[in-house]
């Protein structure tokens, strides 16, 4: 079977664990064909696991080093203040000087949440010498378009949380609204009697918020021409095709209230 599941209408916005695994399997096959680095990590002694990808990027890191050589994590704002660079903070238009950038190692994990019956994206970031980025540092990496959205609700933001399978601190995007923004996508697919991979669609929405891109080619079935799934993945493009969201909207597939508080709503600003 190609990509897992056919959307099951209004109730189909939830994902059971078996389907999660099937969607991951397909996603990983595709990743292998594309050589883009996703792998499945099994948790020792259990049947559970997660998808993982590591990416190297660049960004601005404010880690200051205390006298003993340890980063003063969690006190980045103070540290920046101490160095007299506080003017740069919050000013999105200030160009980042090259010497302020460093190489950052991002690690993304896709897990299943049985409570919310959705996938969840966990991630962490560190410098190449292994020093973890603080929450403030991670915020600096979030694209300004998303930052505003994320700041509006206490649970729709990036928080630090224990990785439930390996017990280490990670950042994550809270899954409690995932079903809300997946519902319209699944309803469209259902109405058109079309299959889609939940993981591909979901990750193409939440991934870019934290710097993770999902290439459009993930929507093509293996060994066959592309399906017309552009509207599920237009977040990968700089600009969506003209009229794309209006089309969806006119079909009654997008419920603006469901989107209003969520990250996907930035899409409307492109129309």
């Amino acid at each position: 079977m190609m990509s897992g599941e056919r959307a099951e209408g209004a109730e189909g916005c939830f994902l059971d664990e078996e389907t999660f695994r099937r969607c991951c399997d397909h996603f990983l096959q595709r990743s292998q064909a594309l050589h883009d680095g996703w792998s499945w990590e099994q948790v020792k002694g259990t049947e559970e696991g997660y998808m993982k990808k590591t990416v190297l990027g660049t960004g601005r890191v404010n880690i200051s080093t205390a006298q003993d050589g340890h980063p003063r994590a969690g006190e980045v704002m103070d540290a920046v203040g101490d160095q007299g660079q506080v003017d740069d903070l919050g000013d999105e238009d200030t160009p980042v000087p090259a010497e302020g950038s460093s190489v950052i190692r991002f690690e993304y994990h896709v897990l299943y949440s049985c409570s919310y019956q959705t996938p969840v994206l966990y991630f962490r970031a560190s410098t190449l010498d292994g020093r973890p980025l603080s929450l403030e540092d991670v915020w600096d990496q979030v694209h300004p378009n998303y930052r505003q959205r994320l700041l509006q609700g206490p649970w729709d933001t990036i928080t630090q949380q224990e990785h439930p399978l390996i017990g280490q601190p990670f950042f994550f995007l809270h899954p409690c609204r995932t079903a809300d923004f997946m519902r319209p996508l699944l309803q469209v697919a259902h109405a058109e009697n079309r299959k889609l991979n939940y993981i591909v669609s979901w990750l193409s929405v939440v991934g870019p918020v934290v710097g993770l891109d999902v290439p459009l080619t993930y929507c093509e079935p293996l060994g066959s021409p592309a399906l017309p799934l552009w509207h599920l993945t237009d977040h990968c493009l700089t600009l969506p095709p003209a009229g794309a969201w209006q089309t969806l909207h006119s079909k009654g597939c997008l419920n603006p209230t469901a989107f209003d508080h969520h990250l996907i709503s930035f899409s409307f600003t492109w129309m």
Binding site: D68, H70, A73, Y116, P154, W155, P169, H174, C176
Partner: peptide, 28 residues
């Protein structure tokens, strides 16, 4: 000193505890 970054979540204020607590209630 020497905050164990690999083991513990940071807790800079009570609002972080509140968010964690409410998140658990929501999940439950």
């Amino acid at each position: 000193k020497d905050f164990p970054e690999r083991d513990l979540l940071h807790c800079p204020s009570n609002s972080v505890i509140e968010a964690h607590f409410m998140s658990s209630i929501k999940e439950a």
